[in-house]
């Protein structure tokens, strides 16, 4: 297990958002966490990257507990969190947004290679490197957010609803990029409301509902569609 979550409980001001969830990701996997709005998907990712302190439970990266570490330290240990809403710095240029991600990079010698990789994946970003990031379209902003995640050079990438608010062709493009990154060796924890799409590219799926895991399994199971259907109709 590269990332392992055990009995994680998280509350916001006394209100429980996660009721003891457990999940694990093997190196090289894409794992999707699906669930409706408010299910606790983003909360799970925020707990992993240290933005909220869990009430109880454990989160381990390569066996090392992340509990109590500040977000910047967790980022430097190799968790590349691409947040919900993308978190682009509108007041900085595209290039500067990417450069900031090298803060988390512990192997500075790899940086140039990573920039080339990002610009090859997203030629649009290369064209717009000097532009203020606030002038990018939604799709380009998502590319930039993923690009930053890559330059961080972590062991695992957490993607929070990368398809949110994008036109269908861009959604397809983003999912294809995620698949490609995974084939190149990146371990990915993907969080989505777009359940079918997220399940279709994942090795395994967890379904989250009001802070509890109500289903988990491999996407090779033939009756997955049916299970997902039930999950959402429940």
């Amino acid at each position: 297990m590269i990332l392992e979550i055990q009995d994680l409980c998280v509350s916001y001001g006394g209100i429980r958002a996660l009721h003891g969830i457990s999940l694990g990701i093997e190196e090289g996997e894409i794992v999707s966490v699906i669930g409706a709005n408010g299910a606790g998907k983003s909360t799970t990712l925020r707990a992993i990257s240290g933005l909220i302190r869990p009430e109880s439970g454990d989160i381990r990266l390569d066996g090392q507990s992340l509990i109590g570490l500040p977000p910047h330290a967790i980022a430097r240990l190799g968790v590349s969190h691409v947040p919900e809403g993308r978190g682009i710095f509108y007041n900085l240029s595209v290039m500067e947004n990417l450069e900031l991600a090298t803060t988390a990079q512990t192997r500075k010698r790899k940086v140039r290679h990573l920039f080339e990789h990002v610009f090859e994946l997203f030629p649009r970003l290369a064209e717009r490197r000097k532009q203020l990031a606030g002038t990018l379209s939604g799709g380009e902003q998502q590319m930039l957010a993923i690009g930053r995640g890559l330059i961080m050079g972590g062991k695992i990438m957490l993607l929070d609803e990368p398809s949110m608010g994008l036109a269908p062709n861009l959604v397809t493009m983003i999912f294809e990029t995620i698949l490609r990154l995974n084939r190149e060796g990146m371990t990915i924890l993907l969080v989505e409301q777009n359940a079918y799409k997220a399940a279709s590219i994942a090795h395994r799926v967890y379904a989250l509902k009001t802070g509890e895991i109500i289903f988990s399994g491999s996407t090779e199971q033939e009756d997955l569609d049916e299970i997902l259907h039930n999950v959402y109709l429940q």
Partner: peptide
Amino acid sequence: YDKVTASLLGIH
């Protein structure tokens, strides 16, 4: 601009 995202990028 945004402290939360900055911290996610490894910025102290």
